[in-house]
Amino acid sequence: MRTAAVIGTGLIGTSAALALTGRGVAVYLEDADPDAARTAAALGAGSTELPEGPVDLAIVAVPPALVGKVLADCQRRGLARCYTDVASVKAGPRAEVAALGCDTVHYIGGHPMAGRERSGPLAARADLFEGRPWVLTPTGDTDTDTLNAALELVALCGAMPIVMDATAHDRAVALVSHAPQLVSSIVAARLEHADETAVRLSGQGVRDVTRIAASNPALWVDILSANAGVVADILQEVAADLDEAVTALRALQAADEGERRAGAAGIEAVMRRGNTGHARIPGKHGAPPTRYESVTVVLGDQPGELGRLFGEVGALGVNIEDVTIEHSDGQQVGHVHLDVAPSAVRLLTGGLRDRGWSVRD
């Protein structure tokens, strides 16, 4: 791939453009908002000039509802030899593409499973897709050159290609992305009018659950509108689980001991189902989940402290599998949770304490 065009310079489009320009591909940028395209160009994502002839691949990076219309316009102009999109829903855009009479031989649907809570070109990163799944949804019409062009795009962005049927993709992302987004937002919404004292007690649990609630509402309305039925089905199942949990919690307050036991069993059952579901989420490098143990270090809020901690962990010969930071409200300290192999816990704890670090038991 020597040339590419990116139509839509938001987070995903600009990130793809940055990745491609970093690999020596000449990228041409377009956006309905010229300021957004100019901003992406200023970041080094490409040029806002028109290409002299058809580019090797055009990447349509617009909301799902606009994919068909934008693709039809690009093909009418002869912008590229091959086309793909990065919309987070696939079946609806594919149907519209067919209804508009677009060339489906040289088009393949795509969806990189990556994003951030922030949007727009200024939030873009060249490494956004590294190590992330990138779904491709070819049809019987898709020719080999188009599939290969999309696979090359995925490789240049450092992502992992996964080929799926469009309808199966939409069911999957409803379960692992779209419904969780709404659940996160619903939980966070309970904090909107909460007492300030209660909010100040927020710990890592509520931060983890509500992290994606900071996402752009307008963007998500576009996404959810294109997959509303499937997401509604999943949320209806979640609502049924919530109803059962409410019933079980009420039973825990009952005077009758039998009812209390039934309530406890109900809560335990749903939490055990959660344990089982969580254990199915792929672990490091896509391998089966591994059980790590957490070592908690109290860290002062001074420049270089985190780097010094990581350096000392490395000097001890311990590999950090994951890390989270829990900030203290009102104090200039934080708690760094280092996930390591169980066999490394004693070495790491003792070694850090010997070096003067405060390690929590």
Rank of each mutant, 00 (worst) to 15 (best):
R190D: 14
T144H: 15
L235N: 00
V176F: 14
S47M: 04
D195Q: 14
A166E: 09
C82F: 12
A150S: 04
G68V: 05
E152P: 03
A245H: 02
L242N: 01
V183S: 03
A80Q: 05
A124T: 01
A124H: 00
A214H: 09
W134D: 00
Q253H: 15
R355W: 13
G283W: 01
L156W: 03
A232C: 09
D56L: 14
R23G: 02
A72P: 01
R38I: 11
L153T: 02
E259S: 14
V27C: 03
K90Q: 06
I320N: 03
L57P: 00
D141G: 08
H327G: 05
G314W: 12
L50H: 11
A41I: 02
T324H: 15
G283M: 03
V199R: 14
R2P: 01
R280F: 07
G13D: 05
M164Y: 06
S358H: 12
A228G: 01
V206G: 02
W134R: 00
I162N: 13
T104G: 04
P161G: 10
A155W: 07
H193N: 13
G351W: 02
S328P: 02
A150G: 06
R207Q: 08
Q75I: 09
T247D: 11
A344C: 09
H278I: 10
A344F: 12
V270M: 07
V297Y: 00
A16P: 00
T144G: 15
L224H: 06
A168N: 05
L153G: 00
A4I: 07
D85S: 07
V55T: 12
A17T: 05
L182V: 12
E192R: 14
I7Q: 07
A16R: 03
R125M: 13
T14I: 06
G120W: 05
G53W: 10
T142P: 00
T14C: 08
T290A: 12
G330R: 10
Q331L: 13
P121M: 06
K284W: 15
H335D: 08
L182W: 11
R353W: 15
V199T: 09
R346M: 09
I12K: 09
H337C: 13
V313Y: 08
L122I: 11
R2A: 15
E117S: 10
G274D: 09
H193V: 13
N227L: 04
